[in-house]
């Protein structure tokens, strides 16, 4: 009897611990979002918000939880321009693992309100001119440290932030497409016509870190999912990949996390051990996206 009690007790203790662990995770993410919650005091009026999986729902302002997207444009604009202090985001793409599943492209297009022909990330079939073989190469914005697109923008609509991310403010973009012409990686795409489902997004507040809602006549491109990074989450494409192609992390910490396995490794070791390279380093653009070489045969 006594013994049985003890066992029960210890069991309960585990469960308690488990509960505490769970609670602390929630608290942690709430802390991350604390900065976003000041604009939520007003009540009575309903707003349309995007949920984490990018569905539109209508909620009362008072019921907005820290995880919900905030509705204050000036706050979002300021936040988007400033970036996250102390970070320098990098991506590593392991070409040997890419099997052209295209889950990254799908996740990206649905998150960023993109039409099927618009790509923030595009999986290309690359030919090896010497071996006559081909491999799959996902190509995003390279978030260059010397970005040609930002240099040429006449109105400071595309800009580089302190955390290394190159973003677009589509509230300011005049649609001259100089950045599209200047980008050697063809990473930029343009809203030639009314964006997809624009009527559904009509009342959504513009968040430049997500670049949604898209606007006709403005440029859009990969934002390294800056909105997700703020919540401590990996980018949409990175977490959607089923094959462990992407690593993403902070260069300052020298740690990158695989989006599929969630394994965190040292960036410098990963790059060194796998003979990593960047795309067209001779152009001097200094990309923040590294590639690990493909295997000889296509996976």
């Amino acid at each position: 009897m006594n013994m049985a009690n003890k066992t029960d007790k210890s069991r309960r203790r585990f469960l308690q611990k488990l509960g505490i662990a769970g609670a602390s995770t929630v608290a942690g993410s709430a802390l991350l979002l604390q900065g976003c919650s000041d604009s939520n005091k007003a009540s009575g009026n309903k707003v349309k918000v995007l949920t984490a999986d990018n569905k539109l729902v209508e909620v009362d302002v008072a019921h907005l939880k820290p995880g919900d997207k905030i509705q204050d444009l000036s706050y979002l604009q300021k936040r988007g321009r400033e970036g996250i202090p102390g970070k320098k985001f990098v991506m590593v793409v392991d070409l040997a693992k890419c099997k052209n599943a295209r889950k990254c492209m799908k996740a990206c297009q649905s998150a960023h309100q993109l039409k099927p022909e618009m790509h923030h990330i595009n999986v290309l079939e690359m030919e090896d001119p010497v071996k006559k073989t081909s491999y799959w190469m996902p190509k995003t914005c390279q978030h260059c440290d010397n970005p040609p697109c930002v240099s040429v923008c006449p109105v400071d609509a595309t800009f580089k932030r302190q955390d290394g991310i190159v973003l677009i403010d589509n509230e300011r973009c005049i649609g001259c497409r100089f950045c599209v012409a200047a980008c050697p990686y063809s990473a930029r795409t343009f809203n030639w016509t009314e964006p997809k489902n624009s009527d559904q997004y009509a009342e959504v507040t513009y968040d430049m870190e997500l670049n949604v809602p898209q606007k006709k006549g403005t440029v859009t491109k990969c934002a390294f999912s800056a909105d997700r990074l703020r919540e401590g989450k990996l980018p949409y494409c990175v977490s959607a990949c089923p094959n462990g192609v992407y690593y993403f992390g902070d260069q300052n910490e020298d740690l990158v996390t695989n989006g599929t396995t969630k394994k965190t490794v040292r960036l410098s070791h990963l790059l060194e051990e796998n003979a990593a390279y960047t795309l067209m380093p001779e152009l001097g653009t200094q990309p923040s996206v590294y590639y690990l070489p493909p295997r000889e045969d296509k996976g």
């Binding site: 109105v155 400071d156 005049i174 001259c176 497409r177 100089f178 006549g217 403005t218």
Partner: peptide
């Protein structure tokens, strides 16, 4: 006529960057 957003022409004067050849 080549601008995607001709309504924002004034942005060139409000937010112009002297680093851009367009300016």
């Amino acid at each position: 006529t080549d601008m995607g957003r001709p309504d924002r022409l004034l942005n060139v004067f409000i937010h112009g960057r002297v680093q851009s050849p367009i300016v």
